[in-house]
């Protein structure tokens, strides 16, 4: 059942994506140029990472508002080691960033499961604490001038085919998505994530340690935020405590457009990839048409609502045809 839902959502996400691409290529003249498509996919790569960071928590029925703050804190702590003049091997700051990210995620998980604080409030608190701590640590300015070996991962261009530039972020994110897809769809852990989110009580009765699963989801989310942090730092060539002040919004948008449902149990990695692409296409396409960025946000809002409505409608239709089981759609239950 769950698996089927996942497919429907993926499908409709890509349907919307294609519809939008067609619309933009009709109205915008240079939209379908290879260089532009390459640019869009490159920007979507970064969005996809934070989208997955959000997805793993949403799958369990939670939410993570602290993604941007974790990105800032974990990279700022390792900032000095990432600078060009640092003699520390590159791998050290990278590993440490991931460790710091996971630790903050662990803290989130602890608050949610042991202290029974709703994820919304717990991660909101972390958002404040981590951001404040990042600023207190950095004190002044930014760490500017990141090592080329780190920057390569986010800015490197591998080769160019007919104007289409294959960049490192595309490769990195494709591998990342494949790994995450495997973890979420093929492993026991992944199945438990879905199960915990779709019906916690039932999962508990069938022996799933739901609390531990929720903690793991938060740790994973923190870890991925750390990865996102490194990628963004490498991209902008600076570790900055201001990094990602609005990324909790972006992450939620990506996951929602990608078909994730706030009450948990529904969503997929490829949906998130589609969601990231949709946002990047909208941004680029509307820029192309000289539409100001504020209007883009409004359009994105409409797309989110439409995507979900479309998903629901599609699912209801499918259920009338095949499934006789009166399954209540998840989104109807409540966010």
């Amino acid at each position: 059942m769950m698996r089927d839902n996942g497919r429907i959502y993926d499908f409709s996400t890509f349907f919307i994506l294609i519809a939008i691409i067609i619309a933009f290529s009709i109205f915008g003249n240079s939209f379908l140029k290879a260089g532009n498509i390459s640019n869009i996919i490159n920007q979507a790569s970064f969005l996809a990472i934070i989208g997955v960071a959000q997805l793993v928590v949403i799958l369990t029925g939670g939410i993570n508002l602290s993604i941007g703050s974790i990105m800032a804190l974990s990279t700022v702590l390792c900032g000095p080691m990432m600078l060009r003049e640092s003699t520390v091997p590159v791998i050290v700051p990278i590993i440490l960033t991931l460790v710091f990210g996971s630790l903050v995620g662990l803290l989130n998980g602890f608050m949610v499961t042991k202290l029974n604080i709703p994820a919304f409030l717990a991660t909101f608190a972390t958002m404040y604490v981590a951001r404040g701590a990042a600023w207190l640590y950095i004190g002044q300015g930014v760490y500017y001038g990141i090592k080329e070996s780190i920057r390569f991962w986010a800015t490197g261009v591998l080769f160019e085919v007919g104007g289409f530039r294959v960049t490192m972020p595309m490769v990195v994110v494709t591998i990342f998505l494949l790994i995450m897809w495997f973890v979420i769809s093929k492993t026991n852990l992944g199945r438990r994530l879905y199960f915990t989110g779709s019906n916690t009580t039932a999962a508990e009765f069938s022996g799933v340690p739901t609390k531990r699963i929720v903690v793991i989801a938060h740790v994973l989310s923190g870890l991925i935020s750390g990865i996102a942090g490194i990628m963004y730092v490498a991209r902008i060539n600076a570790a900055d405590a201001n990094l990602g002040t609005q990324y909790h919004f972006d992450a939620i948008s990506v996951a929602l457009i990608g078909g994730a449902v706030m009450s948990g149990g529904v969503g997929s990695i490829w949906g998130v990839a589609g969601g990231a692409l949709i946002i990047a296409v909208i941004q680029s396409g509307m820029n192309n048409m000289q539409i100001p960025s504020e209007v883009q946000k409004a359009f994105l809002g409409v797309v989110i609502i439409f995507a979900v409505f479309f998903n629901n409608w599609f699912q209801e239709k499918k259920m009338k045809v095949g499934d006789t089981q009166p399954v209540k759609t998840k989104s109807e239950a409540k966010a």
Partner: peptide
């Protein structure tokens, strides 16, 4: 029938 979180977020 769009969930409130998503509807109002949009």
């Amino acid at each position: 029938k769009v969930a409130p979180f998503i509807a109002t977020f949009g």
